[in-house]
Computed example of a mutant assay.
Amino acid sequence: MSLTKQADEGITFDTFMEGVWRQNPVFVMVLGMCPTLAVTVSAENAMSMGIATTFVLVSSCLLVSMIRNLVPKEVRIATYIVIIATFVTLVDYLIQAVSLKLYEALGAFIQLIVVNCIILGRAEAHASKNPPLKSVINALGMGVGFTIGLLALGATREILGAGKLFGISLFGEHFQPWVVMVLPPGGFFVLGGWLLLFSLLRSRKEARAEA
């Protein structure tokens, strides 16, 4: 294997992991807080929103990267929004076709993917300046990182608030759920706990690096 190919693979892996860990949208950059707090009352809702957002993110960044040299700078933001809105509409109809129950649970937050700053930010900051493959890998990493963040919150809230995970009972009928966890304040409590954990992990990593 040539050094060039090894370097390309390293860049690809680093590009992917940037969104999964180093710049995780939820736990590091603290972006997309509206769906993060609103739909994470269960792991199923969180996973579904994460997958939907990842699809829109990857598809939009791929198309933006492909036409990056054709779009005038004056209308680039409007063009990106139209592209994102197109894929969001597709996702909206797909979820309706697959499960009306899930569609009702996610509510207006499906359409609000259009204004998710993660997607527009990736389109403007990365996809518009890089070739398709690198843009897709970066977008996929961000989408996976966002999904992990949503799932971490959704699973925690569902376990503590209902004693279940993906609808499966974990503790039996005698478990007393923490009802606050499935209410809006519970989202803030759980998010604060995860942010504290990530902050402690980063601090320990920096301390070891300095030692």
Rank of each mutant, 00 (worst) to 15 (best):
V136T: 09
L140H: 02
P35Q: 09
Q23W: 10
N130R: 13
P131I: 14
L165C: 03
I159P: 01
L160R: 01
V30W: 04
N138P: 00
L94E: 06
L106T: 09
A155R: 01
S135W: 02
L183G: 05
D14M: 11
R208E: 11
L62S: 06
T54H: 03
F189Y: 13
L201D: 04
I113V: 09
M47E: 00
I118L: 13
S60K: 05
P72K: 08
V64N: 03
F146W: 11
L170V: 03
S169A: 15
V39R: 01
F27R: 08
L62R: 07
R208W: 05
L94A: 11
V56I: 06
T86H: 03
K5I: 12
N45C: 14
I83T: 06
S42D: 06
E44Q: 13
L62K: 06
S203G: 14
D8N: 13
S48E: 00
V30Q: 15
I67T: 13
F166R: 12
V39E: 04
T156Y: 06
V20Q: 06
V182D: 03
L63P: 02
M181N: 04
A7D: 11
L153Q: 07
V41L: 12
L31N: 01
T156L: 09
S135C: 03
Q111R: 10
M33N: 13
G145P: 00
R157V: 02
A211S: 13
N45V: 09
A139R: 03
K134G: 00
S48W: 07
N116C: 06
I148Y: 05
I95H: 02
L31A: 13
I83P: 03
M33G: 12
E104L: 12
R208D: 02
I168Q: 13
G107T: 02
T36W: 00
A7F: 10
S59I: 10
L165V: 02
T4K: 10
F27L: 15
V20G: 04
V182Q: 15
K129Q: 12
A52N: 04
M49I: 12
Y103W: 15
M1C: 13
P72H: 03
S42C: 05
L183C: 09
M47D: 02
A43N: 07
T40H: 08
K73L: 05
L170A: 04
